[in-house]
Design a protein around this nucleic acid. Structure first.
Lengths: 105, 105
DNA sequence: ATGACATTTGGTAAAATGACCAAATGATAG
DNA sequence: CTATCATTTGGTCATTTTACCAAATGTCAT
């Protein structure tokens, strides 16, 4: 494989990996209808603030979200909202799996 | 968050995580135009057969691919091809990132 | 049966990830 | 300027992931 191709694959995998954690995926979904501050996101997550901050940082690194500080708060938003449009396909994978499991019984 | 919601998020994250490794993403892309046997996939990957086999097993667990043994060979195929349609969006994320990096210079 | 071939499984070691705590930063209010 | 609030950073530890090697499995031809 060419170096450039390889780099592209790695970059894509990196984005998918960033979304491949329940907390981070949940956060991304929360941003579907607009920005939220860290404190809002934190409300529904049972984890240390530092943990939440680090997850957001992973999403930012991957280019999934952008952050903006306003006053004391930091707001995050989706940079490329199409990533959520994909979820119906992911759900199809899961449904498929579930049906096959059910067929075994 | 409700238990069911939580389980769904976890399932979705799991699929994304499975695709979130360069080798596995590459494999999935190779299957775009139909099934391939492990040996074909292995040709372009510089890794032990056992490593390749384990990656395929992760994709299978996640419900991304299905396998079928025919003769000595095992063939893998995509179960839900829409996952590849997503890649254009992922690429948009990367392009976005790249442009921002470029703007810094 | 025996050997050769394609793939998987089990074991192990190195590296990456994720969670928490404590401390640092930056912004605002008093 | 000091205290306070929101968030990030650094450190540490447990867990998970990944890669390789060696050995096992299942299939086919002889």
């Amino acid at each position: 494989m060419k170096d450039k191709q390889k780099a592209l694959i790695e970059a894509k995998a990196n984005v998918l990996k960033a979304l491949g954690h329940p907390t981070r995926l949940w956060m991304a979904e929360q941003l579907e209808h607009g920005e939220k501050c860290v404190c809002e996101l934190a409300e529904s997550i049972d984890a240390d603030f530092s943990t939440i901050s680090k997850h957001l940082s992973v999403l930012k690194q991957a280019g999934v979200v952008a952050d903006e500080k306003r006053g004391k708060q930091v707001f995050y938003k989706l940079k490329v909202p199409c990533i959520l449009k994909y979820m119906s396909c992911i759900e199809a994978v899961i449904k498929n799996q579930a049906e096959e499991q059910a067929d075994l019984l």
